[in-house]
Computed example of a mutant assay.
Amino acid sequence: MRAVLSKAPGGPETLVVEDVLDPTPGKGQVVIEVKAVGVNYPDTLIIEDKYQFKPERPFAPGAEIAGVVEAVGEGVKGVFKGDRVIAVPGWGGLVERIAVPAAGLIKIPDEMDFETAAALVMTYGTSYYALKDRAQLKPNEKLLVLGAAGGVGAAAVELGKAMGADVIAAASTNEKVQFALDLGADNGLIYPAGKMDKAAQKTLAGELKLASGRDGPDVVYDAVGGDYCEPALRAMDWNGRYLVVGFPAGIPALPLNLTLLKSVSVIGVFWGAAVARDPAGHAANMAELMQFWKDGKIKPRVSRTFPLERAHEAIQALGDRSAMGKIVVTVES
């Protein structure tokens, strides 16, 4: 079978497509014929050895997949050949077939296509865990989303609206802000691209507060980091909750005096570890997300698709922050 492999640390251009042996299911495993692979920001990091996990090489990136169960291993119950399923292996998904534990599979609703299924779990799972479990977002609160047109940011916009919040979408271009407004955001703001000095940061803080209402946002969903952290923190309301989600613009130096002055809680969001620690809570969240989808409250926006042979281009498009919504690699055996 074909596989997209990382054989040495580097950017997407270092990935190669090679033939490898087909997997066989071990005890408690199934083999899935992969139909679609969601591309996520960790894919850009893991191939450069910059992610929390460093798989032994060669390995395939690709953290979430949708496909059809092709073979069932010993001891597996409740999963059958031909089932349409989602799996989140963390890596290894950019292949034609993959062996994964059966216990973590999510059944795909009959009316959901494979591309949508591959675009659902990681971004919406991360954002729902962040907003529901970590921030405990309440109806009518003000939610500011930084990076509102990216995968997790767009999911946060939709979920914030589904949870009854007033959502302010911030992004680097008018096109991206309009994309977030089309998702349902109540207000939008274009922030400067690139580095900002202290004066520019203070100006942005005022603009973020103005866009969020007189008192500023109750919750900040920060999927960007870098120089955007301090302005968003300065804009926050009393007893606000600041969600630390990702750092494509760099890891910021947080001015802790601001958290004291505003009684702000800074809350880390590590969805992958939370899934492993609380599988029952994860299953409950997934069931709620599927219901949101069935009710039409969320809808993954797959903006671009690439074939397996061009998976490196898909990862590059995500890494250079040009993508809006979700990018998916489709796999044809």
Rank of each mutant, 00 (worst) to 15 (best):
L318I: 14
V16P: 00
D320V: 04
K195G: 07
R310P: 01
V4I: 14
G150F: 03
F80I: 02
T44I: 06
T24P: 01
L289I: 11
G75K: 04
M236N: 00
M290R: 15
D133L: 00
E18K: 15
A63Q: 10
M163L: 15
V37A: 02
S127I: 08
S172Q: 03
V69Y: 06
G246H: 11
L210D: 11
I267T: 12
S303G: 09
M286S: 14
G206I: 04
A193I: 13
N140W: 09
P9K: 15
K77L: 09
G296Y: 12
E288M: 12
A148Q: 05
V16F: 11
D110H: 15
R97A: 08
L143M: 03
S303H: 06
N174T: 11
R97M: 03
L131F: 07
K50W: 10
E111M: 08
M324S: 03
A117W: 08
E111G: 10
V245H: 07
N187K: 07
Q52W: 08
A235N: 04
G104Y: 07
G151H: 05
R2N: 08
N257V: 09
L256K: 03
Q136Y: 05
N239V: 11
W238Y: 10
V88E: 01
L21Q: 12
V39D: 06
K107F: 15
E230H: 14
L144E: 01
K294W: 06
G147Q: 01
L45G: 07
D110V: 11
K50T: 13
A66Q: 02
P101S: 05
K142Q: 03
P58S: 15
D182K: 15
L146P: 00
P23F: 13
T123S: 15
A119E: 03
K299Q: 10
L233H: 13
E74W: 02
L308Q: 06
K138C: 11
A323P: 00
V16W: 15
A63V: 02
E207W: 12
V328M: 12
N140Y: 12
I46Q: 05
T203E: 14
L105D: 04
A118R: 06
V264C: 15
G164E: 09
G213M: 09
R241M: 14
G11L: 05
L181Y: 13
N174G: 08
A185V: 07
P307Y: 13
A223P: 00
P252V: 01
M122W: 06
Q291P: 00
W91I: 09
A165W: 01
Y51W: 13
K107Q: 09
V269F: 07
G240Q: 11
F114K: 03
A283M: 09
V37S: 03
I190V: 15
P248E: 05
A280T: 05
A162F: 12
G325T: 08
I190Y: 02
Y128K: 05
A273I: 00
